[in-house]
């Protein structure tokens, strides 16, 4: 069972990777959006760091980089999950299900594919930011923690979209896949730290798990103290919740085979 799950997931991973290698343009959207945000936020909004009360050791580029990096993780997952919906439309999903009637293998395969994609786009993003002169004050261990935390975001978003794909089996709901993730990402301290937010956004951000993840990663990149444990707890919890959701939707959709 375990070995068959693994071989199914590796087959799914291989397939997504081959698709990506054969058509590298596939990763452009998941890279382009974060890049635009990086340029527009880090480049265009640098004056925000002059707002009274704003203090961040790493500088505004690093401050924004963390947001964009987290976003890349989320988008890598979304675009990978989107493939599942495409597979349903093309009928490929049926073949996959007949060959591999267990949800675990298929889901794991897509999660791995999402992580691979995130790893690739994340590396490119790091490269660009470093070339552009971003300040990194955190230790290598802290940077590793940053990757791990973001990886959880990628896993959660892949599973979220996978669940939607199982449920609707159509790519028409593309914007419903992105919208909630987008909103969750932006109802967080994107431009300024939580302390400088006011009104309803402050309220929303206070309860948004993304806030803790961003705060921890901003701590990591600038070598400052942060509530890392809380962030990891939330991120792993979110991923687990999404796993539950995806598996449920899978079984709902394939009662007969699963």
């Amino acid at each position: 069972m375990i070995s068959s799950t693994l071989s199914v997931s590796l087959a799914v991973l291989r397939r997504v990777m081959i698709q990506t290698i054969k058509n590298p343009a596939i990763i452009i959207p998941s890279l382009a959006f974060p890049l635009v945000f990086l340029v527009a936020f880090a480049g265009g909004l640098s004056i925000v760091a002059d707002v009274p009360g704003f203090s961040f050791k790493g500088g505004y580029t690093a401050f924004q980089f963390v947001f964009v990096f987290t976003q890349t993780a989320a988008f890598g997952g979304i675009f990978t999950g989107y493939r599942i919906a495409e597979d349903y439309e093309s009928g490929f999903a049926r073949r996959l299900l007949i060959a591999a009637p267990h949800s675990a293998g298929i889901l794991l395969g897509f999660v791995l594919a999402g992580l691979a994609r995130f790893f690739l786009t994340g590396l490119i993003l790091w490269g660009i930011a470093l070339v552009a002169g971003m300040n990194v004050l955190g230790s290598p261990l802290e940077i590793l923690a940053m990757w791990l935390l973001a990886a959880n975001v990628s896993i959660a978003s892949t599973l979220w979209v996978a669940g939607l794909a199982f449920r609707f089996q159509s790519v028409d709901i593309g914007s419903f896949m992105q919208m909630p993730v987008f909103i969750l990402l932006f109802l967080a301290p994107v431009y300024v730290p939580l302390a400088l937010l006011t009104g309803w956004l402050k309220l929303a951000a206070t309860y948004n798990p993304v806030t803790a993840i961003l705060a921890a990663n901003r701590g990591f990149i600038s070598g400052e103290e942060s509530k890392a444990l809380l962030a990891f707890g939330l991120a792993v919890g979110l991923a687990a919740l999404m796993a539950l959701w995806a598996v449920r939707q899978f079984h709902r959709a394939h009662r007969s085979v699963a």
Binding site: L45, I47, V48, D50, V51, P52, G53, F54, F186, L187, P189, V190, Y191, V192, L196, L197, T198, G199, W200, L201, K202
Partner: peptide, 12 residues
């Protein structure tokens, strides 16, 4: 989102 997130820039 922007109106809330960037409201502090009006203090510049």
């Amino acid at each position: 989102v922007n109106a809330a997130g960037l409201s502090s820039v009006t203090e510049l």
